[in-house]
């Protein structure tokens, strides 16, 4: 038995030490918002935040996560009110939607570190997450919009 801290809750999971976090989340904890796209850290759709840093759950063994705080899309906000989610809604970013958990969490991590990102910051931070539907132009717009929401909420 291993303990994982996911979205602020401790979970006991019966997993071998080398089981990737992705499958512990999806198949053992039933948190299916984190997706499987490649299994080799190439597509980013399995991205979760570990202590706030984007990480590929498909290649991270559960044994590496003791004592760390894991955030999945289900835990980003209780009501889709995170600035990134608000901006994503306003710009209608998702198409098929399959990559969007990875996109949203990666964008949230970017804004936490760089509240007013440049276009180059956005391209660099978001490059690990593929989108076969080509939502990239809207992701750029939505991140700029989210940055504005963050700024206004700070000043307001």
């Amino acid at each position: 038995m291993l303990t994982l801290n996911v979205n602020g809750k401790s979970h006991e999971v019966d997993a071998d030490a080398d089981m990737p976090l992705l499958w512990a989340l999806r198949d053992l904890l039933g948190l299916t918002g984190t997706k499987f796209g490649c299994g080799i850290a190439q597509c980013g759709v399995c991205t979760v935040l570990v202590d706030g840093v984007p990480l590929r759950a498909c290649v991270t063994p559960v044994s590496a996560l003791a004592g760390k705080k894991i955030t999945t899309i289900e835990g980003l906000s209780a009501d889709s009110s995170h600035p990134v989610q608000q901006a994503w809604l306003a710009e209608e970013v998702p198409q098929c939607g399959f990559c969007q958990s990875g996109q949203i969490l990666t964008a949230a991590a970017l804004l936490a570190k760089t509240p007013q990102p440049t276009d180059a910051d956005i391209d660099q931070a978001m490059a690990p997450v593929l989108c076969r539907c080509g939502t990239y132009p809207r992701i750029r717009l939505a991140i700029q919009r989210a940055a504005k929401i963050v700024k206004e909420s700070r000043h307001g």
């Binding site: 948190l31 299916t32 918002g33 984190t34 997706k35 499987f36 999945t72 899309i73 289900e74 980003l76 906000s77 889709s80 989610q85 994503w88 809604l89 209608e92 998702p94 939607g97 399959f98 969007q100 958990s101 949203i104």
Partner: peptide, 16 residues
Amino acid sequence: RLDTPAKLNGTAVFGQ
């Protein structure tokens, strides 16, 4: 779009 909200919070159910 009617499907956007479910695609922002992990609730959209894909085959997987």
